[in-house]
C-alpha cells in the first residue's frame, strides 16, 4: 500500500502534499486502479497528522475522479493519470541522466543544475502557451 509522508520544510500545505503524492504514485505506476489508499485512521497513526487534512486531500482526489470512497471498506483508486509507458519512461530517464552527468562534468553545481532545469522548463512551457 502507498506509504504517505509529510515534509514540513517544503512550505506546501500538508493536504496538498498528500494529493501530490497520490498523483505522483499514479503517474509513476506505484499504485493502480483498484488499490486501496491508507484509511484516515492509518494515516493519522502513521503521520500524527490531523484527520481533517487527510479527509480534505481524499476529497480533492475524489473530486478529480482519481479515487472513490467505499463506505466501510476504504478509499480506492478508480482513475488513471495515463502513466508514462515503461519504454518512454526509461528513455526519458536515460536522456535526463546523460544531461545531468554532462552538467556536473562541465562544473555546474546542484543549484545551477536545478536553476537551469527550471528555466528551460518554463521556456518550453511558455512556447506551448504562446
Amino acid at each position: 500500500m502507498l506509504k504517505l509522508r509529510l515534509d514540513s520544510a517544503t512550505g506546501v500545505p500538508p493536504y496538498l502534499q498528500i494529493v501530490q503524492q497520490v498523483r505522483q504514485a499514479l503517474l509513476l505506476g506505484y499504485i493502480h486502479v483498484g488499490d486501496r489508499l491508507p484509511t484516515v485512521k492509518e494515516a493519522v497513526a502513521e503521520l500524527a497528522i490531523n484527520p481533517n487534512t487527510v479527509v480534505k486531500a481524499y476529497r480533492q482526489l475524489e473530486h478529480e475522479g482519481l479515487v472513490s470512497a467505499r463506505p466501510g471498506q476504504g478509499t480506492f483508486v478508480v482513475g488513471d493519470l495515463t502513466p508514462v509507458p515503461p519504454g518512454v519512461h526509461a528513455a526519458l530517464r536515460r536522456s535526463l541522466e546523460r544531461w545531468v552527468r554532462d552538467a556536473y562534468a562541465a562544473g555546474l553545481d546542484d543549484e545551477m543544475v536545478t536553476a537551469m532545469f527550471a528555466m528551460i522548463r518554463t521556456e518550453v512551457r511558455n512556447e506551448g502557451v504562446a
Binding site: T39, P51, V55, Y58, A69, R70, P71, G72
Partner: peptide, 9 residues
C-alpha cells in the same frame, strides 16, 4: 461511524 470518509470536518 463507518468508512474512512465518514468523519466530516
Amino acid at each position: 461511524m463507518s468508512g474512512p470518509l465518514s468523519i466530516e470536518p
